[in-house]
């Protein structure tokens, strides 16, 4: 039941987040410092220690500060109680509503940081047969119960290497929507090399969202995103991405890049992508073995943090002049967002979300594919390992002791179970390097909200 706050100062703003209510307060410097000196329950009169701590401020004004602090506390907007253990009963085995379909375990690129071992996930290079794709749809319908909205992501490897299957699976799923009262939302992630007008038109007609993989500046991109012969891919894919986005109109898309130790000035890559005409941008830190030359390590964090703050300031200036763009990880809905249950559950991998390999094997998510011990079923015999599913049911924030104590838990939802497994050897133990970057991004996102609020008030 204990309340929790997180306070930080950035870009001249003093900000206090009340963790359990989600309230965000922009305060002045005295109020900010005062929070270090007093603890709830804030009963009775202003403590003498506060008067003594600020001798330059009149007793009357200090009393005013304290009464504002008490008012927030009593309104449950500061140190508000943690009722969330009451939701533990809602962490149950749920219908499967999202599926990652690995239509190709092969790729025409050999990106150095690829978690999928450059496309084959550590196995043989294979394509999913159409029949397996259709069985996957049957599997999703069977295990989705009464869920209406279903998501299917065409993934790889490189999914455009098996595009006829993509078309067939979409047609098949659409043919079943009405009879089963389902709404399929298709998405696709592509490196763009094989895009042509036929594929672009199909994607723009059928895909609810599309992710276009590019890392930013040509020299940055081509250093790590190389073809099989070692040559870069930037010049080939960028015109195709531009054409897709131009023809897509208002449809959702993201250009999505990875930054590594080689480009800790990644704000330049974000700006480059915007300069090239994209306004929906995500550039994210690589997750890699710390011994690799491109991996980000704890030593890199000060530079990465400074760059996030620099990007936040640039984005603010751009929004001010009407030339803003969306940077994925600085987007935050402070007024509503998802429900508390969703925030505690997170991605739902292994419970509401599964991945299917070209052979029809079912895994908790795309990041677990290739790790045989995590296989949890097959679309061939419509099987699912309920014991494994139950393990993921109990991998919510409430089950992660470190996460329960963290101020960011309702925004990151316990992080990525696959990364936890890979780097902390336990799905319930957070991969703390990623946590630190997530927390910095959240602080930047909240600061942007504070600054925009100030400007709109002044404007």
């Amino acid at each position: 039941m204990t309340g929790m706050i997180h306070k930080f100062s950035q870009n001249g703003y003093y900000i206090v987040l009340d963790v359990n209510s989600g309230a965000v307060h922009v305060v002045d410097e005295v109020f900010y410092k005062m929070l270090d000196l007093v603890q709830p329950p804030f009963a009775g009169d202003c403590p003498e220690a506060l008067y003594a701590a600020f001798p330059e401020i009149s007793r009357e004004e200090i009393g005013e500060y304290y009464s504002e602090l008490r008012e927030l506390y009593e309104a449950e907007q500061l140190y508000s109680p943690d009722y969330y253990d009451d939701l533990a009963g809602k962490m149950i085995s749920a219908p499967v509503k999202a599926m990652c379909l690995h239509v190709a375990h092969d790729c025409n690129l050999r990106c150095r940081y690829c978690f999928a071992s450059t496309g084959d996930f550590g196995g043989t290079r294979t394509m999913m047969p159409v029949e397996i794709g259709k069985m996957a749809i049957d599997y999703l319908i069977k295990y989705s119960g009464s869920r209406h909205n279903l998501e299917l992501d065409f993934f790889g490897g490189e999914p455009t290497m098996n595009f006829e299957l993509v078309k067939e699976v979409v047609r098949y799923a659409r043919s079943l929507e009405k009879a089963h009262n389902k709404n399929f939302r298709f998405t696709i992630t592509t490196n763009g090399i094989l895009l042509d007008d036929d594929k672009i038109d199909f994607i723009n007609k059928e895909m609810f969202n599309v992710v276009l993989s590019v890392d930013g500046r040509k020299e940055v991109n081509d250093r790590v995103r190389a073809r099989v012969d070692g040559s870069g891919c930037y010049d080939s894919m960028m015109p195709k991405f531009k054409r897709l986005v131009e023809k897509r109109g208002d449809g959702q898309y993201y250009v999505r890049g990875t930054f590594t130790k080689f480009n800790k000035d990644f704000a330049e890559d974000v700006l480059h992508l915007n300069q090239e005409g994209f306004d929906q941008i995500s550039v994210e830190p690589v997750v890699a073995d710390p011994n690799l030359d491109y991996a980000l390590t704890w030593d890199d964090l000060p530079e990465v943090f400074a760059e996030y703050e620099r990007l936040a300031k640039i984005l603010l200036e751009r929004k001010k002049t009407g030339t803003g763009f969306n940077f994925f990880h600085f987007m935050l809905d402070l007024d509503q967002g998802p429900c508390a249950v969703k925030r505690l559950k997170g991605c739902g991998c292994g419970n509401e979300y599964v991945a299917v390999t070209p052979d029809g094997d079912v895994y908790p998510c795309h990041q677990f594919v290739g790790h045989e011990e995590w296989k949890m079923g097959s679309v061939l015999d419509l099987s699912i390992d309920e014991k494994k599913k139950e393990m993921f049911v109990h991998s919510s924030v409430l089950d992660k002791p470190e996460c329960k104590k963290c101020w960011a838990k309702f925004y990151c939802s316990g992080g990525c179970n696959a990364n936890n497994m890979q780097y902390a050897r336990n799905i319930l133990t957070p991969y703390t390097l990623a946590c630190e970057m997530e927390k910095k991004r959240l602080e930047c996102a909240i600061m942007i909200k504070a600054a925009l609020d100030e400007w709109s008030t002044e404007g």
């Binding site: 965000v24 305060v27 005295v30 109020f31 402070l334 504070a450």
Partner: peptide
């Protein structure tokens, strides 16, 4: 409030 501005309606 004089020293605090709350930005949002604030999740449940």
């Amino acid at each position: 409030m004089k020293h605090v501005k709350t930005l949002n309606k604030a999740m449940k």
